[in-house]
Design a protein around this nucleic acid. Structure first.
Lengths: 338, 338
DNA sequence: TGGTATGATGTGAGCGCTCTCAGGCACGAG
DNA sequence: CTCGTGCCTGAGAGCGCTCACATCATACCA
C-alpha cells in the first residue's frame, strides 16, 4: 500500500485517446462542444488510466477550491457539534469539502490566525460558529475576505448569519414555569461571554419582569454537568428560596438535579426544573427533563444555503435568518406545592 | 467586506524588494543562505504587501498539501466526536489542516468514494475512524494510496492503527460485578456491526465463562439512551432474572436505568449497572454511574504521532498501538441482596 | 597567485489544470 | 466558386509556487 505512484494526468489521457489535453478537459467538465465519438474515446481512456482530476491544480487555475472552511468554538459541546455535522453533510451534498478548524478561544488574534490559515488554503467560503459574542466579532468580520456566514451570533442584520432565537426559548421556559404557578424562580446560566448564555439569561429576566415577578438568584456554570452541580449547591448554600429553576443547558440541569436531590429536595415536587437544548438523553433523566429544543438540522441547512447564495453572489443581501426553538414538556415541572 | 482583491504573490514581493522571486521563496522558507540585509529587505516587503504564500500553489509544486483527511463514522457519538476534536488539535499544532468527511455508513463504496475525494484533494495522510469492523475494511486499506492510520478498528497488526482494548474494558466491568458477588449478569450491547460493541460483548462473555458463570441474556441497542430504555424493557418483558447489567455505553445505561426504575427496581440495590465510556455526565446520573473510562486524548495523540511517522516514512512499521481503559467506580454497583 | 570551497543570488522549467484565442472543416447561401 | 457561419479541436499562456541548476562574488589554503 501507500505507493505514491504517479497519477494519470490530463496529458496522459490525451495521449492515450489521441486528442489534445484541452479536449480531455472539455469532456471532464461536460463542455457541450465535443463530438460524441471523441467523448467516448476519451472516456474510455479515462477509465483505463483511472484518471481523476487533480483538485489542487484545478484550484490553482480557477482560483477556487470547492471547499469551505469552518471555524468552530466549543465544538465538543452538543449544540456546536451538531451544527458541524449537519453542515458537513449539506456541504458534501453540494460538492464542497469541509476544512475544519477548532479554536481554543475567541480572541481576535486566534480568529485572525485561523481565518488567515483558511484563506491561504483558498477556501471559497467560511462558516463561523462563534457562540461568544461581543463587538470584536464585528471587527473580525472585516478580516474575512471570502463569503461567510456566522452561526449563533446575534449581531444584528448587517452580518450574514443564522441564529436560533435563544431569548425566545428562555421566554418559553420561564413563561411555562410562571404558568404552572411558580413565583420563586432561580437560574443557572451558561458562561456570560457566550452570546447564547446571555440571551437566555435576558429572556429569563425579561419574562419575569413582564410578569411583575422579582427574579430569583442567578448563578453561572460552564455548560458541564459538574458546573451545574456546583451551581446548584451554591444556590442551596446561600439559602435561596425557590420552587423552580431555569437552567442554561441540559447537562447543567442534570448536575443541578443531582445536587438538589442530594440536598433532600424531591423533583419535581419541591423544585421544578427546565433545561435547554433537548439533548437526546434529556428524556431519560430522573425525572425526564422539560426543556427547549433547538433545531440544528434546519440551522445547518439554512447556513449552507445562505453561504452558497453569498458565494454565488457576494453582493447578495446579508440578511439574518432566525429560527425559533420549542418547548418540550416532560416531567421535571409540576405545580408548586402550597 | 468580501472584496476578493488580488493577493500579493512572490513576484510582487520580489519586485518591491528588488530581488528575485527565488530569494523571496528562500526567506519565506527559512533557507539559511540569504544574507541578513536581503532577508530584512524582503521581510519588510512581505509585511508591506501583507503577503502570505498561496498554499494551493505550494501544494501543486510540492505535491503535498500539508493537510490530512479524516473519514469518520458516527462522529456525532461521544467517542468518535472526542477523537475528531483531539486529532484536529494535535494536527493543527503540527501545522496540518484537517479536511473532515463524515460517512453515513461504512460500505466499501461509500468509503471508496470518500477516499477518492480526499485523494483528489491531495491530502498527505488519512485518519479513519471506522468503528464498524469486518473484512471489508481490509479490502479498504488496499484502496488507500496515502499513509493512513485507523482508529478503533481491531484488525490485527498488519494495519497501522491505534485502538482501545475494548475487550479488556468489558472484562474490567464484568469482573467487578463478579467480585461484588453478582452471578446473574445480563448485557445490553451496542450494535454488533460495531467492532467495539462486539468486543465488549466478547469480553463480557469470556469473563463470565472464565468464572464459570452462565451468561445472562444479552440484548442490543444502537448506542442511544432511547435504545437502552427499550432494551431494558425487553429484558424485563422476557422475565429475565438478573442482579446486574453490563451496558455497552453510558447513554444506553441511562435509558436502561430509567426503564428499570419505572419497573420498580431500585438502583443499585435490586440491580447494579455498569456502563462504558465515562461521558462527563455519567457522574451525575441517578445513581452516579460506575463505568469504563476511555482515554480519547491519548488516543488522538497516538494516532497523530503514528500517522506523522508514516507520512515521514511510508515504510515505517505498521504497528498497532493499544490503549487500556480503566474502571471508574461510582454508585451504580452494590452487592446483590441475598 | 591560482585553484577551489562556500555563500548569495538569479534563471527557467515544471506541477496539472483552465482559459482565451485561433484554426480547420463542413455546410449552405449568394 | 466564394464567402460566411457553426461546430470541433488544438495551441499556448498563465495560476503561484518549488526545485535543480547556473552564476558570480568573496574567502581560504597552499
Amino acid at each position: 500500500m501507500a505507493e505514491r505512484q504517479r497519477r494519470a494526468t490530463l496529458h496522459d489521457v490525451a495521449q492515450l485517446a489521441g486528442v489534445s489535453h484541452q479536449t480531455v478537459s472539455r469532456v471532464v467538465n461536460r463542455h457541450p462542444s465535443v463530438s460524441a465519438t471523441t467523448r467516448l474515446r476519451v472516456m474510455e481512456a479515462i477509465r483505463e488510466l483511472d484518471y481523476a482530476p487533480n483538485r489542487v491544480a484545478q484550484s490553482l487555475a480557477t482560483q477556487r477550491s470547492k471547499s469551505v472552511g469552518i471555524i468552530g468554538y466549543g465544538t465538543t459541546h452538543y449544540g456546536p457539534s451538531q451544527m458541524v455535522s449537519h453542515i458537513e453533510a449539506d456541504l458534501k451534498a453540494k460538492g464542497y469539502a469541509l476544512v475544519y478548524a477548532a479554536v481554543p478561544d475567541l480572541s481576535v488574534d486566534v480568529l485572525r490566525e485561523q481565518i488567515a490559515t483558511l484563506r491561504d488554503q483558498l477556501v471559497d467560503g467560511l462558516v463561523l460558529i462563534t457562540p461568544v459574542g461581543g463587538g470584536h466579532l464585528l471587527e473580525t468580520s472585516g478580516l474575512i475576505h471570502v463569503p461567510f456566514v456566522m452561526i449563533d451570533a446575534m449581531l444584528g442584520e448587517h452580518v450574514p448569519s443564522v441564529v436560533i432565537h435563544q431569548r425566545h426559548g428562555a421566554r418559553l421556559a420561564t413563561q411555562h414555569l410562571i404558568d404552572m404557578g411558580h413565583r420563586e424562580i432561580c437560574e443557572i446560566s451558561g458562561p456570560m461571554e457566550w452570546t447564547g448564555a446571555r440571551q437566555r439569561h435576558d429572556g429569563w429576566l425579561a419574562t419575569l419582569r413582564d410578569a411583575a415577578i422579582a427574579p430569583g438568584a442567578s448563578v453561572d456554570g460552564d455548560w458541564t454537568a459538574a458546573s451545574g452541580y456546583e451551581a446548584a449547591r451554591r444556590l442551596l448554600a446561600q439559602r435561596e428560596r425557590f420552587t423552580a429553576l431555569f437552567v442554561g443547558n441540559d447537562q447543567m440541569a442534570l448536575g443541578a438535579m443531582r445536587a438538589l436531590r442530594e440536598a433532600g429536595r424531591s423533583l419535581p415536587d419541591d423544585v421544578s426544573v427546565v433545561g435547554f437544548d433537548d439533548i437526546p438523553e434529556a428524556a431519560y433523566f430522573e425525572p425526564p427533563l422539560t426543556t427547549i429544543r433547538q433545531d440544528f438540522t434546519t440551522l445547518g441547512q439554512q447556513a449552507v444555503e445562505l453561504l452558497l447564495a453569498r458565494m454565488a453572489d457576494p453582493e447578495a443581501p446579508a440578511h439574518q435568518r432566525v429560527l425559533y426553538p420549542q418547548l418540550i414538556e416532560r416531567q421535571s415541572v409540576s405545580r408548586p406545592e402550597r
